[in-house]
């Protein structure tokens, strides 16, 4: 356990040290929330509009999506930045240590997921000031779902990064993976009114289940899938991606 907790400690220290980066990364979801959210909230302010969004106003509908998106983005970045560790040599430190590599990488992933969740909590706290229909009682289960997404996605980031040899593909991966997964998650609009092919893509997107579940807990919108499905899929994916990351990391040598 010592290596596991040490890696979480390291993530925490790095998180605290890079205040500028943390604040910078919070600006993005705030812009979505305020500019995108308030903009559409005005447009959807006609009688019956709330029927589109499961009976709540658009801001309340949007918040769980933005929170899940924040955790998703941050944990993916946390995971994939292991490529920096690879480039700046910290990985070598771990690889020559008489420590369990699996434990080390799980600590790295968990640390990343926790830091991403803290950013999700900040966004959620701000949301209570601008969306009226949020339920305080839903905060904990929604965050638990976010944490699972965080684990899955940080694990996915690590697995991808272990196969990358340089930072060159980084920008492309961000655009190719993060943007489509965000739009296909139902964070901004309901999955069930999407064209059918998009619905299919949405269903294989882990973020969809986090948005679906936390929207139920935070906004009271009845879930498109069952809650059990949401929890099962996310737990399964978290285990799957962490497993892949462990396997990839155990094999790791240096070039």
């Amino acid at each position: 356990m010592r290596v596991f907790t040490t890696m979480i400690y390291r993530e925490m220290k790095r998180f605290i040290r890079s205040k500028a980066r943390v604040i910078g990364s919070l600006i993005n979801p705030v812009i979505w929330l305020v500019l995108f959210g308030k903009g559409w909230a005005g447009a959807f302010n006609f009688p019956g509009a709330s029927m589109i969004f499961g009976g709540v106003d658009y801001m309340t509908y949007l918040v769980p999506g933005i929170v899940a998106m924040t955790v998703f983005n941050m944990s993916f970045i946390q995971g994939i930045t292991i490529i920096w560790d690879k480039q700046f040599g910290f990985i070598k430190e771990i690889l020559v240590a008489p420590a369990s590599r699996g434990e080390a990488i799980l600590g790295r992933i968990t640390g990343g997921a926790i830091m991403a969740m803290i950013q999700g909590v900040i966004i959620l706290a701000l949301s209570f000031f601008i969306a009226s229909g949020l339920k305080l009682s839903g905060v904990l289960p929604a965050l638990a779902l976010s944490f699972l997404v965080g684990l899955a996605v940080a694990g996915m980031g690590v697995a991808i990064a272990m196969r990358m040899s340089s930072m060159e593909g980084f920008q492309m991966i961000m655009t190719m993976i993060m943007l489509p997964m965000t739009f296909l998650s139902g964070a901004f609009y309901p999955v069930k009114t999407m064209p059918e092919w998009m619905q299919w893509l949405a269903k294989v997107n882990p973020l969809t289940y986090a948005v679906d579940g936390s929207r139920y807990y935070l906004a009271g919108v009845s879930p498109a899938f069952s809650l059990r499905t949401d929890w099962t899929v996310l737990t399964g994916l978290a285990l799957l991606f962490m497993g892949i990351a462990v396997v990839e990391f155990r094999k790791a040598t240096i070039d």
Binding site: K13, A97, A99, A104
Partner: peptide, 19 residues
């Protein structure tokens, strides 16, 4: 192969914990 964001002490501390 140091953690550039962390202090000298923290670098030592993390290494010590791992060992």
């Amino acid at each position: 192969s140091l953690d550039r964001e962390l202090t000298a002490y923290e670098n030592m501390y993390i290494h010590g914990r791992i060992y």
